[in-house]
Nucleic acid binder design. Structure first.
Lengths: 325, 325
DNA sequence: GTCGCCAATGCAAGCGCTTTTATTTCGATT
DNA sequence: AATCGAAATAAAAGCGCTTGCATTGGCGAC
């Protein structure tokens, strides 16, 4: 040892300024010499903090979450907080399990996707006093701290643009809406716009399907087999739209001449597609970053813990054309 | 309480079979009633295990890692082990930091990408007795437990195929090779094949660049400005290849008629591209899964802890054509 | 009925750290 | 040189759990 008590070592590690420079350097030398690392368990037990936050996302395979997580993780790491990630595969029960599992691991903060979940879960979180932030969705009057955007309004804006371009036979490929408020809001938004013009979205023109390339392609093939076929397919995200474009090509049709397609998210993919995808731009990385900062403020019991809303924007590329051109 | 000692509660939670059915059910009732969760720190301190494994990957934004992690995480979760993910952004120093940070958090297992890293790090891991698995790369005689494939051989096979199709002016867009043995091996593999036919890959025909879409496009533009221009661009991964295809289109050229392109990884993207990408198929998900199982065996000190090698395969789609057709 | 044995449970000692409180040290002041 | 106070450090009490060992109780064998 460096001739000091464990208390001093602890102080050197946690509040270096409270220790005299001379002792501090001696301790630091010893730490370096023995390649000492404090024991996490001991620390967690004594201080009752783990400096860990948990995120439960649907899947890492969706680029939007991967990107958001990356930003989240970077922002948290700056303050020495570790991120633990679990996935639910879009299953609400599994999400609840994962949250409980992470609670058991003593995470002292949560980042959760969307708002739709069992009230009992919210109650548990509050009772334990574990702060959390809901990401990726936002609506007026959401009672929890959120960092997101208005999925419904964004989808509505996209659908309005579609209608402005003269489309009347509108079909939609949505994500699975059960337990997914983002997917639900996007369908609602499209409905809003259609209804406002006296149109509807009946069952035959709306398919819910997992957010996967092949699933999107299958759905598009089904929608396009109708007579008369839709002039536009509005998709719940970019991956579904990519699938739809694949299907269109495989049917010998041409986008946007025969059928227009729109996406949602604006991931890299949208740029690569041919034609490039008209979609809704969502600032995933900035949301991840903002979520981290909001969560840190909540943990620190700071005052400024208001929800953060991001604006989305229509990005018009080549996949959406006016009807009949 | 349920009228038992804490010791019994601990046993109910950890080795239920050692407690009589009657007591066990009483304890379980109490646990459920109070919504009790064991304190992670206490547990870690007393048992000196955290049931956590750490993974340090370059970035979650690359689909291959996202996919591998997803599989890894699912396989680990089955046995109650939690995955903690950190990212290095392809920076060896940062990777070392992250490994030490995770060690400090008491992870009792590691999944690391590739083999190239400071020997001191390996020493630290061994000294601490923390088992680890290297993923995504494999070579004969690797002294550590690996789950991967032979990047060099796979790249060589791809290059051979390119040469078999008559290409002689071969250019390559590689990832940054510093501290990245996969990227390095892929360049070597291509060189192997070229050298075997008396060709070379001089500086003007090899560009190293980050694995990003735009970077790939820029590199392709530079390569294609040469006279005579290359007939094929071999890319270090699919994202770079997608960028190259974008650049080719933006230059008014056509793939594969004017220039062929090949990728590496076979992510979803490869299928969507136009023309669809000829690439090397890598079983990312299965690697993640196998890595989890190998690590669990190492932790359990089982005998069967041999490295796992996966086969890769050429997937021929439309982006590579024979020269002069 | 007694004894011995094993399964089931309780007891109590830590695990390595943080933190409150007490003690020492040292410099400044008189 | 003595005194005081502030700053620096040590002492010691847990944090909530696991686990080796001691104890209890129940049962079968004699």
């Amino acid at each position: 040892m460096a001739g000091v008590s464990t208390a001093t070592v602890s102080r050197v590690l946690n509040e270096p300024e409270r220790v005299s420079a001379k002792t501090r350097s001696r301790v630091e030398a010893a730490v370096a010499h023995f390649d000492y690392t404090p024991h996490f368990g001991g620390r967690a037990l004594a201080s009752n903090r783990t400096n860990t936050v948990g995120a439960v996302i649907p899947t890492m395979e969706n680029a939007i979450f991967a990107r958001g997580l990356q930003a989240l993780q970077e922002a948290l790491a700056e303050t020495g907080v570790t991120l633990v990630v679990a996935t639910s595969n879009y299953d609400p029960e599994r999400e609840a399990q994962q949250i409980r599992a992470l609670l058991g691991r003593g995470v002292d903060g949560f980042v959760l996707i969307g708002e739709a979940r069992d009230p009992a879960l919210y109650e548990t979180l509050e009772r334990r006093g574990v702060p959390f932030v809901l990401v990726w969705s936002w609506r007026p009057d959401c009672p929890w701290p959120c960092v997101g955007f208005d999925n419904r309004a964004a989808a509505r804006a996209m659908a309005q643009r579609v209608l402005d371009l003269g489309h009347r036979r509108v079909a939609m490929i949505a994500g699975i809406t059960r337990g997914n408020d983002r997917a639900t809001a996007r369908v609602k938004g499209v409905r809003d716009a259609l209804t406002a013009r006296g149109l509807g979205l009946d069952e035959s023109n709306l398919i819910e399907t997992p957010y996967q390339l092949e699933a999107g392609a299958d759905a598009a093939r089904r929608l396009l087999s109708a007579t008369p076929r839709p002039t536009v397919i509005v998709c719940g995200n970019d991956v579904l739209a990519a699938g739809a474009l694949m299907a269109i090509r495989s049917l010998g049709l041409n986008a946007p001449d025969d059928v227009s397609v729109t996406g949602f998210d604006d991931i890299d993919l949208a740029l690569i597609l041919d034609p490039p995808l008209t979609t809704v731009h969502v600032p995933h990385r900035r949301m991840g970053d903002a979520a981290a900062r909001l969560l840190l403020r909540l943990r620190a019991q700071e005052d400024d813990t208001a929800s953060v809303v991001f604006e989305t924007g229509l990005v018009e590329r080549g996949s959406l054309a006016s009807v009949g051109t």
